[in-house]
């Protein structure tokens, strides 16, 4: 695996096995996360991005299972790890920041205990006083006063709690931080501060961040690269300026046009036709084809592969595929 790639996700499929049949929340997805970058993962609700994020740490319980694929993290395939070995990776090498910091923190535990427990879970030999010192340093670095470490979660504000979450993810100097909708529950100002913080951390610690969100603006602001998901599949990946500047996949195009722009006159709000598909019975071929303004015959027959069109810019669309067999007439 090339050295600059921290995480290589190959052919990953995550299925929910229910009584009514199985649903693929993530279907045959390939993605590389490069060291030191902030990669944004965007898509509508239900497209599978959160499931993908959780899958990277094999965090699923219950009916969701990874049924295929490999997770090459820093030179080894996480899928080969046993149930006893996996907790060693979680928290220490890969960290996660959750959407709602209020419910993600144990209301019965002080902040200090959250941190020291995490440290002791991975480095049991660390003394209590050392662990406490580390914890205090950590939250101070993140902008929280030391004394607050004895607080309970309900005594802190939303923004502070989110910083605590980051500190938990960084407590053991994780290499990759997965942030699942981290700003959705924050107001705009706090959100801005939070994003600044993320950028600082990336620069100061060389942290790699996978930023999962449905908010394109957030992604545009701090990401280096972006990946777009639709209906459990990856449809476009590339440098953020390329993808947002010249989107290739019709879905990405529609997505960007839907973002309200202050320059638009009223009455010009764009809405994509149709609705995301029911994943228990997904459309044949390209999942977007029932809604695509440029649909061709082949789109309904065969699944387009994710291929590079230019250097570093990939997309899964028959419009650009070099493997297209019969360029059909286009439907407007």
């Amino acid at each position: 695996m090339p050295d600059d790639i921290l995480f290589s996700i190959r052919d990953l499929t995550v299925e929910y096995l229910t009584r009514a049949g199985s649903v693929k929340a993530v279907d045959d997805v390939n993605l590389n996360i490069r060291r030191g970058e902030i990669l944004g993962l965007v898509g509508e609700s239900g497209c599978g991005k959160s499931t993908l994020g959780k899958a990277l740490m094999r965090l699923h319980t219950g009916p969701a299972q990874i049924t295929a694929g490999e997770l090459w993290f820093d030179g080894r395939d996480l899928m080969t790890l046993s149930d006893q070995e996996m907790p060693e990776v979680r928290g220490a090498e890969i960290g996660m920041v959750f959407q709602d910091p209020m419910t993600s923190l144990n209301p019965l535990q002080r902040i200090l205990e959250h941190l020291t427990e995490t440290i002791h879970a991975h480095e049991p030999e660390v003394s209590n006083s050392d662990a406490r010192a580390r914890a205090e340093e950590l939250i101070e670095r993140l902008g929280i006063r030391r004394e607050r470490i004895m607080d309970y979660p309900h005594q802190m504000s939303g923004g502070m709690r989110q910083r605590v979450m980051i500190s938990l993810a960084l407590a053991l100097k994780a290499k990759l931080v997965i942030a699942d909708e981290p700003t959705t529950s924050l107001d705009v100002i706090v959100e801005a501060k939070f994003l600044d913080l993320l950028k600082e951390l990336q620069q100061e610690f060389g942290l790699t961040i996978l930023l999962i969100t449905h908010n394109i603006g957030v992604v545009a602001e701090i990401s280096n690269r972006v990946a777009v998901m639709y209906a459990a599949k990856m449809v476009e990946v590339g440098d953020v300026n390329d993808v947002f500047g010249q989107p290739k996949h019709p879905y990405t195009q529609g997505l960007l046009r839907s973002v309200p722009n202050i320059k638009l006159d009223s009455g010009e709000l764009y809405k994509m036709a149709g609705a995301p598909p029911d994943l228990t019975h997904p459309p044949s071929g390209c999942r977007f084809h029932p809604r695509c303004p440029f649909v061709m015959d082949i789109c309904g027959d065969e699944v387009p592969p994710l291929e590079p069109i230019e250097e570093g810019h990939l997309t899964a669309c028959w419009l650009y595929s070099s493997v297209v067999k019969r360029p059909e007439k286009m439907h407007a």
Binding site: L59, R90, T103, S104, H122
Partner: peptide, 11 residues
Amino acid sequence: DYIAAARARGI
């Protein structure tokens, strides 16, 4: 959620 979050930290 906090149980899932704790699991994500390797507890």
